[in-house]
């Protein structure tokens, strides 16, 4: 196994594209190194992207923010602008691991690990976030939602890697929230999760995006469920309808972490609770 700390995007792309064996991007390493230690993978080449210029930058762009691929949870959590604009994205990212893990873990790493239970992903998708991808054919942008395709699999091509994540602008009367269910209080993997992003106009919900995690092979975008909120004051009836729609959409499996029945129930409860938090946050801003 070889390790190279790339100095430029071009060098990283060339290394990744040129490797005939198994080449992996190393960001925080909090998934990758664990998988190597557990003998789950045996990469031939690790390309560390943390030395590349700009990977730790958080830059305002068109009213939103562009976040470098190596920015850790601890760094993002200290960025007042991002925290104010996308509190749900930050809270999802900050749920990952412990203080130590927070100092290293990245959103792109969470996304490219492609676990349906990744905690940073649902709120990014609910935010309509995009990623910028560098590759042998140049640079392209892609919706976060289109990156994971199956457990452990992404849509990235050979030689491609994510250089930044972009969180768009939005109105003052909008907010988001993310909740996950774990049996404990931390250091655990989501049994079910829900992100809700809302746009309010006075008491009325004008737009909503709901995304569910850990209840399907990839995250689920719950558009039908989101519609139950739009045009309502988000009263109990609307929230119950949201919960039911989320439970119906969920297609989880029975495994050591939870039963189908439990996950379906709980994902609805989480969506309902996240919606209320987002509603309160949106109200607090206007």
């Amino acid at each position: 196994m070889r390790y190279v700390a790339a100095e430029t995007v071009e060098q990283a792309v060339a290394l990744l594209a040129g490797e005939t064996g198994d080449a992996r991007v190393l960001a925080g390493g909090t998934d990758l190194l664990v998988q190597i230690r557990m003998d789950l993978i045996e990469p031939d080449l690790l390309v560390d992207i943390k030395r590349i210029d700009g990977m730790f930058d958080i830059t305002p762009e068109n009213g939103g923010y562009r976040i470098g691929a190596a920015v850790s949870g601890a760094m993002l959590g200290e960025h007042a602008g991002v925290c104010a604009l996308w509190p749900g994205v930050v809270e999802g990212f900050e749920l990952i691991g412990s203080t130590q893990v927070q100092g290293r873990a990245t959103m792109a790493g969470n996304l490219c690990n492609a676990s349906p239970a990744g905690d940073a992903v649902p709120a990014l998708v609910a935010a309509n976030a995009t990623v910028r991808i560098a590759g042998p054919d140049g640079t392209r942008d892609c919706a976060v939602a289109d990156i994971p395709v199956a457990p452990g699999k992404t849509s990235l091509g050979k030689g491609e890697f994510i250089t930044s994540v972009y969180l768009p602008a939005r109105s003052d009367s909008a907010a988001d929230a993310y909740l996950r269910f774990i049996p404990r209080t931390e250091m655990d993997i989501a049994v079910a999760s829900a992100a809700v992003s809302l746009e309010m106009e006075g008491d009325i919900c004008r737009a909503a995006r709901v995304v569910l995690g850990a209840v399907g092979p990839t995250i689920l975008i719950a558009d039908q469920a989101a519609k139950t909120l739009v045009g309502t004051t988000m009263d109990d009836a609307a929230l119950d309808a949201l919960a039911t729609a989320c439970s119906d959409l969920a297609s989880p499996i029975d495994d050591k972490r939870g039963t189908v029945e439990f996950r379906k129930d709980v994902v609805g409860v989480l969506a309902k609770r996240a919606a209320k938090i987002a509603q309160t946050r949106a109200g607090g801003k206007s």
Binding site: P183, R184, T185, E186, M187, D188, I189, K256, R257
Partner: peptide
């Protein structure tokens, strides 16, 4: 937790859940 194949499914602290301090 054992599977139908008689194999232990949670041989690690991620899925064998001892309480953490915040619990």
């Amino acid at each position: 937790i054992y599977g139908a194949d008689g194999r232990l499914q949670n041989a690690g602290f991620l899925d064998y859940r001892i309480p953490v301090a915040s619990d």
